[in-house]
Amino acid sequence: MITNNSKPLLEVQGLHASVNGVAILKGIDLTINYGEIHAIMGINGSGKSTLAKILAGHSAYQVTAGNVIFDGKDLLALAPEERARSGVFLAFQYPIEIPGVANNQFLRLAYNTVQTQRGKDELDPLEFDDYVREKMKLLEMNPDFLDRSVNEGFSGGEKKRNEILQMALLEPRLNILDETDSGLDIDALRIVANGVNQLTNKDNATILVTHYQRLLNYIVPDYVHVMNSGRIIKTGGKELALELETRGYDWIGAEENIPEGAAL
């Protein structure tokens, strides 16, 4: 939701980044205020996940220019765990499997770490069990997933739900959902989207990376951005997603390429 008096939560300024010397992000500017939902769309390989992982602090990417300010602080100076503790959360496009680490143990460790950071009490295993089961109900998740290893053998959709469960537990300020909708069946999409809607409010903000307008019917964005080869090439309202759905991406490039003055 866009409000007039809200302040920026995230400011990405002229962000350039590369991996192994190959430039991937080539100047991203993006400001997200508290309470807002931004969708990022764009063709495969345009750099959406790269942007998401850089915000989360993945070390494979080198920031070569630009700044990222999170709640007034230099986000790039923080280690990934410090970012997480100060409220940055990335729901991964491809959540990793961690054999041998029980999901409930992992979730409790993450929860307690973040709670401690916020000066709140940790929960013991029994208290946490009650708490996490409540959150699982929100996502209609079977409690059996607590006893399994983190994401191990989870179906694509189950992994995505487990990501949103973590978001529900950690109550971040910046939610970055990287293609959380892909892999979800129609019912699951509705359930997960409902869950996300219950978690978004005026004290946080959300970036939705998606390829499909369908998700945006459930989680309505305030802005839609289109990325292409490492840049945001167009920004619009939610109707832009509908237009992309019918027209694809080609026309944007064409429109942008019209020489100045030619349209006059």
């Binding site: 602090g57 990934p80 765990e81 970012r83 990793i96 993450a110 770490t113 973040v114 950071q117 950690l170």
Partner: peptide
């Protein structure tokens, strides 16, 4: 990285 992105040192 996955664990760190959830706040673990």
């Amino acid at each position: 990285f996955y664990l760190k992105s959830r706040g673990l040192s």
